[in-house]
Design a protein around this nucleic acid. Structure first.
Lengths: 244, 244
DNA sequence: ACCTGAACACCGTTCAAGT
DNA sequence: ACCTGAACACCGTTCAAGT
């Protein structure tokens, strides 16, 4: 039935296809085996157990990130592009996304993106500690964003918010903003937050002895010498973020 | 064996206890029933199925958020406290966290925190569209952060990063920053990003006709009139974020 | 080395029967 | 209205047997 021999890679590919077709809940060793035309137990010659297989799925999906950032581009744009690259695989494998963000990834899969992010931030002048924290902040934002996107999608029509039976007088802001809350322009939302993050990072002092932001919360004086840090060539108005 | 009658609430409480004790994978209808000293099928008189039960778990956990922000406090501090409140329940129910962030919550559970956040941001002068987007940005950041924290915790000792077999010359930044990458000061990391986000938002223009950040990426000129937007009374150096 | 069927200890849920 | 045991169609994984 299958010309190619069974292998870890082939099993993982079948698992990914199955998850994208029928959802993560539908994946089972028996079903994957059936899909491949082999006995269930044959899988265990290439994968120790189901958890390891799912780790392989996460690893494989993550490894397929296609980074499009140009090493010669200004660092803020590189950061944006790296964040967008993560988001793209989440869109390419929507039903695997929970799996990718939900399990502890093998370090080898995480290493290349991490190295790229750190190199970009170090090149921008941040010290090691700040570079690591800034990277983690971006990852947290991207992970939280794609999670919201794949979670909102499963049903055809979004549940209305606030729910119909709600006493709206208790939630006046939500009531007033219902049309906005029910609109889901994921691209625009993502770009809005991304730009805010990039901007916050660009305003951060750099170089030796740079202060962490927590050392002077929302200080009004940091703005005074901000020009010396923001050296990106002036850009025209951005796309507005609906281009994904 | 159990004096109190069976009820949806009691079943959910048992499920939460079970998840926190044995992990989310260990939860099953049969095990919850055994824990309650009833037959499996008795559960179905109060809960339509397992998925609904898990939704109830997510809803209940979320409803236990204790907001500590003072409505009279400056809005930036209110935003910080709301973000910290979310993070606190994730720490209180670490093994339920994936469940809470991973499923589409019943809108009734999400409504009170949403209303509070929107009221805070509207009170700060943001228009409805910006308020919604800023809120979503904070939620994405908090969700991504707690996900990282609960994911990193299961094993006693963190896997070393980069992995031992790696050719370090290919990943110089990761190699140089290995000590920092392997340190996991979740409190400090979280506060660092939170402060950066708050700062970015505080610098955002407000009022009618306020521009979205994407309309002028990392503009160097926004800094000039920033003082008029940042009116929080000057604060002393913050704790540094290790107080959680 | 790789494959496999039978078997074991689990699942969620339907159904029909009880009170 | 609430509870329940038996039954059904599934699970992941161990084991012993094949090639």
């Amino acid at each position: 039935m299958s010309p190619e021999p069974l292998s870890r890679a082939r099993i993982i590919r079948a698992a990914i296809a199955l998850i994208e077709r029928d959802g993560a809940d539908a994946v089972s060793m028996r079903r994957i085996a059936a899909e491949l035309g082999v006995g269930v137990m044959s899988l265990y010659n290439h994968v120790p157990n189901k958890a390891a297989l799912l780790n392989g799925v996460a690893e494989t999906v993550l490894s397929e990130i296609e980074f499009t950032d140009d090493p010669g581009a200004y660092w803020t744009e590189r950061v944006r592009e790296q964040a967008r690259a993560f988001r793209r695989i989440a869109h390419h494998y929507p039903r695997c996304t929970m799996l990718v963000v939900g399990r502890k990834l093998p370090a080898t899969a995480a290493l290349p993106p991490v190295e790229r992010a750190l190199a970009t931030l170090r090149g921008a002048g941040f010290d090691g500690q700040d570079a690591v924290r800034i990277m983690r902040m971006f990852i947290a934002y991207v992970v939280g964003s794609v999670l919201r996107e794949v979670r909102a999608t499963p049903a055809f029509v979004d549940e209305e918010f606030p729910p119909a039976e709600t006493d709206l007088s208790l939630f006046p802001e939500s009531a007033a903003l219902a049309p906005i809350l029910n609109r889901n322009d994921h691209d625009a939302d993502f770009e809005f937050g991304l730009e805010l993050l990039v901007r916050a990072v660009a305003f951060l002092p750099r170089g030796r002895g740079a202060a962490s932001p927590a050392s002077a919360p929302v200080g009004r004086h940091d703005a005074e010498n901000v020009d010396e840090h923001v050296t990106e060539p002036a850009a025209g108005p951005a796309s507005g973020g609906t281009g994904g």
